[in-house]
Write a protein that binds this DNA or RNA. Structure first.
Lengths: 171, 171
DNA sequence: CTGCTATCTTGTCAATGGCAAGATCGGCCA
DNA sequence: TGGCCGATCTTGCCATTGACAAGATAGCAG
């Protein structure tokens, strides 16, 4: 039987992200993941160690992509907030694990550098620490509530914009 | 052997809440729960149906308590925000499941009425819908980020107050 | 006392996460 | 060229778990 020689690690992380987006982190099965990738049930363990390792890789991937999205949004606080919300809505699988320490290996090196990158992208936007925390809180809160269905509407951007503007306006 | 005749259902929900607070929703084991309560491994199923049923009961309990906390906080938006954050920090097990639809029976009757109670308590605070959403987002976001460790400090209230004030100040 | 219902039990099963040991592959160096 | 070696992936196994089915017990109504 021929072995799998593609980039199995990346295939697994992306598959895991979509699975988490569909069924939540608790619904993720390593064996199901392996089945879909066409490999044996023990293949994930080699690359990630355990289940938390898979989710840690997903989270690290998410923070990296978030850092890029925030950087691309520029210096405007409102634009950055919208980019944050859009990232969460477009990558629900990543977002669902990124801030849940109970699912991750919090001391993973790759994760920490990715977190740092996103954190740095955030810190550069606001004038002081409280303003940064406030902006981060609104964007994060709105994204979470939207994903949970607590806030809903026809368009995310249209719903988020007035909420985020209210925060960006304050000095 | 004598059967358990106390209020097993309530004992389970509170035990489940503390277990979730310690190990996250994914780490919750119905059998471990039953063991701690001194009942058989199938006892939880009778009261809650399945695992999601247990977490649904925890979430409903959380929304009920949240509604009380918000009502007690009065009409001030800042006070309500602080009460929201304090509730999340004081009841991390409840908060962790309340907004995660993937863990719950979203159509549960008890859950829906509890959600409604909390939602009503929130809606009465702000002048318009956007203001309510904004206040909710900041409080929810700050609480989430604090619980995840992304924002930290010596005292929650001291850290939250300037952030929430920034939102409450805007008309 | 008898029957009824809610509560709790034992018994069982498939699925899962994780570990150990072995097989295969691809590249590196003599 | 040919053999070695580490990385990758496999098979085999085990304890734990969630869920279901069927039975036992307790307390209450009549």
């Amino acid at each position: 039987m021929s072995y799998h020689h593609g980039d199995l690690r990346r295939a697994m992380t992306t598959a895991a992200a979509t699975a988490v987006a569909e069924q939540g982190p608790a619904g993720l099965s390593l064996r199901e993941l392996a089945r879909r990738a066409g490999v044996s049930h023990a293949a994930p363990a080699h690359h990630f160690g355990d289940k938390a390792g898979v989710l840690t890789a997903v989270a690290a991937d998410g923070f990296t992509q978030l850092a890029v999205a925030l950087t691309e949004a520029g210096d405007d606080l409102l634009a950055a907030g919208l980019a944050y919300v859009r990232f969460a809505v477009d990558h629900p699988g990543h977002f669902a694990v990124m801030f849940d320490r109970s699912l991750l290996h919090a001391d993973d090196a790759e994760l920490r550098t990715a977190e740092r990158a996103a954190s740095d992208a955030l810190a550069g936007l606001a004038s002081d620490a409280d303003a940064a925390r406030a902006a981060w809180s609104v964007a994060h809160g709105f994204a979470s509530l939207w994903l949970s269905g607590a806030i809903s509407g026809p368009d995310v951007g249209a719903a988020a914009e007035p909420v985020l503007r209210r925060m960006a306006a304050t000095p």
